[in-house]
Simulated scan of single mutants.
Amino acid sequence: MSHHATTAHDIAAYPDFTQLFHRLPDALAYAPGRVNLMGDHTDYNGGYVLPMPLPQETHVEVALRQDRTVRVWSGNVEPAQAHRDYRLGEERRRQDWVDYVQAATAALARGTHALSGMDVRVVSSVPPGAGLASSAALLVALLHAMRNALRLDVSDADVARLAHLAETEFVGAPVGIMDQMVCALGRPGSAFFLDTATLAYEHVPLPPSAEWIVIHSGVRHSHQTGSYPERRRECEAACALLGLRSMRDLEGAGRQEVLSRIAELPPPLDARARHVVTENDRVLAGVELLQDGNMRGFGALMKASHESLRHDYAVSVPETDLLVELADAEEAVYGARLTGGGFGGSVVIAAQAGAGRQVAGRIAERYRGHCGREAAVLLP
């Protein structure tokens, strides 16, 4: 998708809804991007995840029409591609950014909700391809705005489920449900502890002793292409050989028994399964450490998680490894890890409160010196 992120300053420069559609919107909604503090590639394996919402958001405005036409404008694509339209009930995948809007109306229609045509304006400051859930933020914001305009009886958790359905079935990205849940239900200042097997969740307040840094490596990733679907297939193959429905079924057995069963799998399935099982353990331990305010302990788990993503799950790239290495060399850093699906994207760093800006600036500067790429500091 050729979306690009914008800043709050850019957003003010866009044509507003009235300039685009010559009337006022009936509803508006927004959804944040997210950064995952712990628990990557566990969500589609029925495991535990620990993301938090970001200040970057996607904003959607909607006005209903009397016909079946949906007209959409996005501020995040080149002006020549900014306007799109289609008819309800005739949604067809175009391999284009409008697929996300079509996915949202198709998912609502499948849920037997009565829809009408609409005019839609989208602007976002969540960077795409950065591993920060730009597509989930877009779908959740779209569904929230449509729900509000049409006065549909749809809960926030329902919005998350519909957004997940839209992305997996219409867009064709085989993602888990973590992103949609945190984008729909997360709270600023808290981590969102989610059991993806039951969708039970808890808001975990973040310790005031920590400041979070998010740096985009400049290497874009995509969930639809590349090795992300391959990792899912490897996990399914591992489950089939172990006689399990999902990796989560390994939870009850004794630790050694689980690891010895995994060790008998052929490579690389053994390593993939080992990552999922140990990452679930890290999420559960991480929640307790955050509740105790133990950032040294949480930072050590972040390092272990990155090593597991790098070696057992093989989803890191030299650029994200370099960012983590540069972060770990900083005295004020508790820990750092790749965040999101991998194959590029961003890293998340836990630093001492008040040190974030200086630490992030130094890491970005050294990163440029080492590999010649520009790193974008997204938080703070």
Rank of each mutant, 00 (worst) to 15 (best):
S2D: 15
A5N: 11
I11F: 11
F17Y: 06
T18C: 07
L20P: 05
L24Y: 07
P25R: 01
A31T: 07
N36T: 00
M38P: 01
D40L: 10
G46S: 07
Y48N: 02
L50T: 00
H59M: 13
R68E: 15
V70C: 00
P79E: 15
R87S: 04
G89C: 00
G89H: 01
G89L: 00
R92I: 11
D96A: 14
W97I: 08
A109D: 09
R110H: 13
L115E: 00
G117M: 00
M118G: 06
V120C: 14
V120P: 08
V122P: 02
S125A: 12
A130K: 02
L142N: 03
N148H: 13
D153H: 14
D153K: 14
A160G: 00
L162V: 02
A163P: 01
E167P: 04
I177R: 09
I177V: 14
Q180V: 13
L185R: 05
A191W: 01
A191M: 04
F192M: 13
A200T: 08
E202F: 06
V204A: 10
P207F: 12
H216S: 11
G218A: 00
H221W: 01
S222Y: 02
S227K: 13
C235T: 06
C235I: 03
G243N: 07
L250E: 08
E251A: 15
E251G: 13
E257F: 05
S260D: 15
P266F: 03
L269H: 11
A273R: 14
T278M: 14
D281H: 13
A285G: 06
L290D: 13
L290H: 14
Q291K: 15
M295P: 05
F298K: 02
G299C: 02
S308N: 02
A314K: 12
A314S: 08
V324Q: 11
A327E: 09
A332G: 03
V333T: 13
T339A: 09
G344N: 01
S346K: 07
V347W: 02
Q358K: 07
G361T: 03
A364C: 00
R366A: 10
R368D: 05
G369T: 05
H370T: 06
E374W: 08
A375H: 14
A376I: 15
V377Q: 09
L378N: 12
P380F: 13
